[in-house]
């Protein structure tokens, strides 16, 4: 061990440059690993058949990274779909699409491998909730309603828990 350390000093290479080179190599290696992985995934997806199937939105989640100190945070959006066959698949989607879809939405899902190609919500099969009085059915069908306090301050879309 002492011989190796002596070797570094004897060769005239500063320890700072050795550490710098190792970190530099690690960073380059990490980027190469990411690039190769992405190209490999891209190539794999291109070889997969494009699938279009009926599905529903099962759940949604986000992943946030960064944001500490002065750095800006990045958010990734994911939606899990359940196809008519019962298969569950999670895809990364854009933020706007994440916001527009809610759990239970039904429609046509298109994907190719792990690549999300889109989800067309089926609005033709939308159903409206109505009610009648159990004891006065002759009053007719009506749409449920309620009171919204400060309606002008309501920012949409809005979740009620």
């Amino acid at each position: 061990m002492n011989e190796i350390e002596l070797g570094f000093f004897n060769s005239g290479i500063e320890p700072f440059f050795v550490v710098f080179f190792i970190i530099f190599a690690l960073v380059i290696g990490f980027f190469l690993f990411m690039v190769v992985g992405s190209i490999s995934q891209y190539s794999f997806n291109n070889k997969q058949p494009q699938v279009t199937t009926q599905a529903r939105v099962l759940s949604k989640r986000t992943k946030v990274s960064g944001g500490s100190g002065d750095s800006s945070a990045s958010t990734w959006y994911y939606i899990t779909f359940e196809t008519v066959n019962g298969d569950r698949k999670e895809f990364q989607v854009k933020g706007q699409e994440y916001g527009m879809l809610v759990d239970g939405d039904r429609g046509t899902l298109s994907y190719q491998g792990t690549r999300y190609r889109g989800f067309n919500r089926d609005v033709s099969s939308s159903f409206l909730l109505v009610f009648i009085h159990r004891d006065y059915p002759e009053a007719g069908m009506q749409v449920p309603g309620g009171t919204v306090e400060e309606v002008n301050r309501l920012k949409l879309p809005y979740y009620v828990n």
Partner: peptide
């Protein structure tokens, strides 16, 4: 205390609803 019965109707061919519902 009133009892309401809830169910779904197809919005593309809805039955008659009360008032302007």
């Amino acid at each position: 205390g009133l009892c309401y019965l809830f169910f779904w109707i197809d919005v593309t061919s809805p039955p008659t609803l009360i008032a302007d519902h």
